[in-house]
Simulated assay, not measured.
Amino acid sequence: MSKEKSKNHLNPRVSTRVIHHGDTFAKGTGTVMPPIYPSSTFAHGNEGGFDYTRSGNPNFRILESVLSSLEDCKYASVFGSGVSAITAIASTMKTGDLILCEENLYGCTVRLFDKVFQKFGLRTAWLDFTDPLSLNEISNLNPAMIWLESPTNPLLKIIDLHEVCGKAKSKNIPIVVDNTFSTALIQRPLDLGATLSLTSTTKYINGHSDALGGAICTNNSEWHDRMLFAQKSLGLQPSPFDCWLITRGIKTLPLRLEKQIKNASAIADFLSEHPSIEWVRYPLRADHPQHKIAIKQMNGGGAIITVSLKANLSQTYSVCKNLNYFTLAESLGGIESLVCHPATMTHASVKEETKTSLGINESLVRFSVGCEDLDDLKTDLNQALNQLN
Rank of each mutant, 00 (worst) to 15 (best):
S2L: 07
K5I: 11
N11Q: 12
V14A: 14
T16W: 11
V18N: 09
H21R: 09
G28I: 11
T29E: 12
V32G: 03
P35L: 08
G45Q: 03
G45T: 03
N46E: 08
G48E: 02
D51Y: 10
R54G: 01
R54Y: 11
G56V: 02
F60W: 13
F60K: 05
I62D: 01
L63C: 05
L63A: 05
V66D: 05
L67G: 01
E71L: 01
D72L: 01
C73S: 13
G80F: 10
S81H: 01
S84P: 00
T95H: 08
C101Q: 09
E103D: 00
L105W: 03
Y106D: 11
G107F: 04
L112E: 09
F113Q: 05
Q118S: 13
L122A: 05
L122E: 05
L122P: 00
T124C: 12
W126M: 04
L127G: 02
D128F: 03
P132R: 07
L133E: 15
L135V: 07
S139A: 12
L141A: 13
L141E: 15
P143W: 10
P143Y: 09
M145I: 09
I146T: 08
P151H: 05
N153K: 10
P154N: 02
I158T: 12
I159C: 11
I159H: 12
D160V: 00
L161I: 11
H162D: 14
C165F: 04
G166Y: 10
A168F: 12
K169I: 04
K169P: 00
D178A: 08
T180Y: 03
F181R: 12
L185C: 10
L190Q: 09
L192F: 09
L192N: 11
G193L: 09
G193F: 08
A194L: 07
T195C: 09
L198D: 11
Y204I: 02
I205A: 07
S209R: 13
G213P: 01
G214Y: 02
T218R: 07
N219T: 08
H224S: 13
H224I: 07
L228F: 03
G235S: 06
S239W: 12
D242A: 13
L245D: 06
I250F: 06
L253G: 13
L255E: 14
L257G: 09
Q260F: 03
Q260K: 10
A266P: 05
D269M: 11
S272R: 06
S272H: 08
V280N: 05
L284T: 04
R285C: 01
P289A: 02
Q290Y: 01
H291M: 03
G300I: 06
A303S: 11
S308W: 08
T316Y: 15
T316C: 14
V319D: 15
Y325D: 06
T327L: 15
S337R: 03
V339S: 06
H341F: 14
T344N: 14
M345C: 04
T346M: 12
T354R: 15
T356P: 03
S357M: 06
S357F: 02
L358R: 07
N361Y: 10
F367I: 01
L374R: 14
D380L: 03
L381W: 15
N382K: 15
L385N: 13
N389P: 00
